[in-house]
Design a protein around this nucleic acid. Structure first.
Lengths: 366, 366
DNA sequence: GTGAAAGCGCTAACAC
DNA sequence: GTGTTAGCGCTTTCAC
């Protein structure tokens, strides 16, 4: 970088005043006479002066920059969050530094470290799931404002979280299916934690404080359990299909399920990736939606309205998530407390045409 | 920010050496005795020392940060670019600052200014189309390394560009259609510049230096013109459908076209948004693909393989675009020249099932 | 090999 | 109202 910039000193010289006089008018604080003001402004414009925020940051201790770390900005959910964060951050006077972790704890740790070294004023992070989130913890302990996105894990209970209400989201979808008369409702979920434990949690009051410590996928299973219980449907564990977090894995899981002979008249897939896979699986088995099976997906991906019939989905307000996170974070940076500690945004059920009411077998045979 | 960090001075004190001794070992340059080295490292680890990159940047003049400015990271094309840039930048030791312009020249200018004030080492930008790109120009003139993404405009001829070969991309799609026997091939394009001028350019040698100054949409029209010419098909201007850059606008344009009675057996849409709209338009008119009309879209969006039959598309290597841009930019930052000035990445035709060979009317009637 | 000291560009006391 | 000065945390001559 041979490019040398014009400093406040140059402006002062050009204007024929002292460095501090120039500084006062350029930082628009302190007082200055009208003439000084004018001469400095003129000199600055003439020289093309551009304040060096590095130097300002050194003095002030603030960089007006926040960092956001997500698994992968290519995933629409995260790019929407990023957009929300960026918009609100900018409105509050912050720029944003991004990092993709690919769910690798080491990359996450390295990113956090780099952001800290660059002295970002705060960090919004969709953390990688892990036993011991010490990198995040350490930063937070040192006083770095941190807000969690979408997920939280043990050890991070004291950090603010901005997330969709995953329990409620799944509950809405399953309840809609039940309302249509379905009783054999399958659920395609990513994780496979002890169901017994989840059932216990499902029974507890809806504001159970530990729910947010579960993975989103587990929270969605709880939503399922609550919905069927509320509709007087008994749990059949065979209806809970597990799958890895890839379209192919989901498709195969659904195909296997459909081939198993286990009866089900409806299916809810609990995240965007699983939704694509599930839809492909249903179709590859030659079934039609909603005639053979009612289907509710997750996330309003474009394809859900390109296929016919259009797919009913639970939509999460992703961009709003980012916007909220940015607001919480900038408040934190400004010294305000994070209150409430948890922002649970509501998902919305977009009823389209992949769901049909379940005609009772007896009636259907008549 | 009451959080006070441990400085190199603290480490030096703890290690019982001078500030400069500590600095030498922590910046791993200069020489230090084994004992000094060890004591400093130990002290640093003990105190949890974290180098202040702000201070380093002040000295070195480099921030190891680049900025990327795009219209909107929610658009898959740009989030893929961002990912490509981020990956390569990180590998080269840079972090990345993002900005969304929503194609607003004022926001673009403001972003560039802010990035410059933060002293980024370089900028990758998908510029807003405008007559007078002075903000970019000013920065570049001042010595800021800049690489253009996807587009270039008059006045920026001297800046490096990383883009897909738009002419070739459209040419591939239209040629594929022509190879299938289609002679009445419609093109859905965003812009509507003087066709005569484009035809002139289409005739000129393929390496015409001014092609990259046209908007991508205009370049795609040139690809169309070249393809039909090469296949001995005469231009019928009625086959070039114009549309605004929204799904609805595209859908309406296609519906209008289909209702007009103008004969066409194939259609190519020249960008992702228009592709969605066109597909919707074809379907809303009750036509089926590829029986009634062959269709080739642009960009490999997920829905193109969710619908049936799956849609043939021209895919641009978006992430690779970002990766290349980052490489060019970091080289520029390191003082190397941008050579070549233009990186034109090749798009790939993904043949799927929305294209059928055109049976000649005479044969069809037999 | 090591320490003292200057300085990157800026702001904020502090005297005048 | 204005100028002088110290200092943010670091690197880097420069003597020793």
């Amino acid at each position: 970088m041979t490019r040398e910039s014009v400093t406040i000193m140059d402006v002062a010289r050009e204007a024929g005043v002292s460095k501090s006089a120039a500084a006062r008018v350029l930082a628009r604080n302190g007082s200055a006479s009208a003439t000084t003001h004018e001469r400095v402004m003129k000199a600055a414009a003439f020289l093309g002066y551009r304040p060096n925020q590095l130097a300002r940051s050194m003095k002030s201790g603030a960089t007006n920059t926040i960092g956001i770390v997500v698994p992968d900005v290519i995933i629409p959910f995260f790019s929407a969050i990023l957009r929300g964060v960026a918009d609100n951050a900018r409105a509050a006077g912050f720029e944003v530094l991004v990092s993709n972790t690919d769910n690798d704890p080491d990359i996450e740790e390295r990113s956090l470290e780099l952001f800290a070294e660059k002295r970002v004023d705060g960090i919004a992070i969709a953390p990688v799931f892990q036993q011991d989130p010490r990198a995040i913890l350490r930063l937070a302990d040192e006083g770095m404002p941190v807000v969690l996105l979408d997920r939280r894990m043990t050890g991070l209970e004291h950090l603010p979280l901005v997330s969709v209400d995953h329990v409620d989201a799944a509950e809405k979808a399953v309840a809609a299916l039940a309302d249509l008369g379905h009783e054999r409702i399958a659920l395609l979920a990513e994780s496979a934690p002890a169901l017994a434990r989840l059932q216990e949690l499902a029974e507890s009051s809806s504001s159970h404080p530990h729910l947010s410590l579960l993975r989103p996928s587990a929270q969605r299973i709880i939503g399922y359990l609550r919905a069927i219980k509320r509709h007087g449907i008994e749990l059949d564990e065979d209806l809970i299909i597990h799958s890895g977090y890839t379209t192919t894995s989901a498709q195969e899981a659904v195909e296997r399920f459909l081939a198993s002979g286990i009866e089900a008249t409806a299916l809810h897939a609990t995240n965007a990736v699983l939704t694509s896979g599930a839809y492909r699986g249903i179709r590859s088995r030659g079934l039609s939606v909603p005639e053979d099976m009612s289907f509710i997906g997750f996330d309003d991906q474009e394809w859900t309205t390109m296929v016919q019939p259009e797919v009913t989905v639970v939509e999460q307000p992703s961009q709003q998530l980012g916007a909220t996170a940015a607001t919480v974070l900038t408040n934190l940076v400004r010294g305000a407390a994070a209150d409430p500690l948890e922002h649970l945004l509501e998902a919305e059920l977009l009823m389209r045409d992949s769901t049909a009411s379940r005609v009772r077998p007896s009636i259907r045979l008549a």
